[in-house]
C-alpha cells in the first residue's frame, strides 16, 4: 500500500508508471485526489503534470514539516523492517509488522471503513482459519446494521443511529425467538 503523494493522508489506489529516458517514475495517488484533479483512466494525465500538481499542493498546503519534527522511525523487532521501508515500498516485512507499526498502520486500514479508532474491537469480519464459513443471512444483516451504527455515531448522525439501533435490537429479538 502506498500513501497518496498529493494529500499524504489516504491510501493510494491509483498507480501510474512512466518510463522516460530509461528512468522509471511512479506516482501513487488516492481516488479523491484523482477525482479532484480531474484524472480519468481514458486520458491519463501525464506524469510530470501529476507530479507538478503534487508539488504545488504540498507548497500551498500546511507548512513543510521540519526535518526534526518528522515522524520517528519504528522497527519491527521480529524481521528488522522499518516503518520508513513500508512508506518507501508500500510492502510490509512480516506479519508482526501489524503489531509493531500499529499506531501508524491502523488508521490507514481503518480509513477504508468508517473511522474506527484503535481499541474499538476487530475490524475484520469473515473467515477465521480453521473455521469454515457458513452463509448466515441474519448475521450478515446484523453486521451491516452494526457497521451502519458505528458510522452514524462517528459522523454524529444520532437520529440515524437511534433508528439503526432499534432495527438491530428487533433483529436480535427475532433471531432469538426463531
Amino acid at each position: 500500500m502506498y500513501i497518496c503523494q498529493i494529500c499524504k493522508k489516504h491510501p493510494a489506489t491509483i498507480h501510474l508508471t512512466d518510463i522516460h529516458n530509461n528512468v522509471k517514475k511512479e506516482v501513487h495517488i488516492c481516488e479523491s485526489c484523482a477525482a479532484e484533479k480531474g484524472f480519468n483512466m481514458q486520458t491519463a494525465a501525464s506524469l510530470p503534470q501529476l507530479l507538478g500538481m503534487a508539488a504545488k499542493k504540498k507548497d500551498a498546503g500546511a507548512p513543510k514539516p521540519s526535518r526534526f519534527a518528522s515522524d520517528e522511525d519504528i522497527l519491527c523487532p521480529k524481521c528488522g523492517s522499518r516503518w520508513s521501508d513500508f512508506k518507501a515500498k508500500g510492502r510490509l516485512g512480516c506479519p508482526e509488522d501489524y503489531t509493531a507499526f500499529k499506531e501508524k498502520l491502523h488508521p490507514l486500514i481503518a480509513c477504508q471503513l468508517a473511522v474506527v479508532p484503535i481499541g474499538s474491537g476487530p475490524l475484520h469480519v469473515g473467515k477465521h482459519p480453521g473455521k469454515r464459513i457458513v452463509i448466515d443471512s441474519v448475521a450478515r444483516e446484523a453486521r451491516n446494521l452494526e457497521l451502519g451504527l458505528k458510522r452514524a455515531v462517528s459522523e454524529e448522525r444520532y437520529e440515524d443511529a437511534a433508528r439503526i439501533k432499534s432495527e438491530l435490537d428487533a433483529l436480535k429479538t427475532r433471531s432469538r425467538e426463531a
Binding site: M1, P95, Y98, T99, L108, I109, P122, L123, H124, H128
Partner: peptide, 27 residues
C-alpha cells in the same frame, strides 16, 4: 480450508488474515 489444516496462516483477530500489502488485509 484444505490447506489451512496443514499450514498455520498469519491471522490476527483485529485485522484478519495478514498480508504483505495492507490493501489485502482482512479477508
Amino acid at each position: 480450508d484444505d490447506l489451512s489444516e496443514r499450514l498455520a496462516f498469519a491471522f490476527d483477530p483485529i485485522y484478519g488474515y495478514l498480508t504483505s500489502c495492507p490493501t489485502n488485509v482482512g479477508t
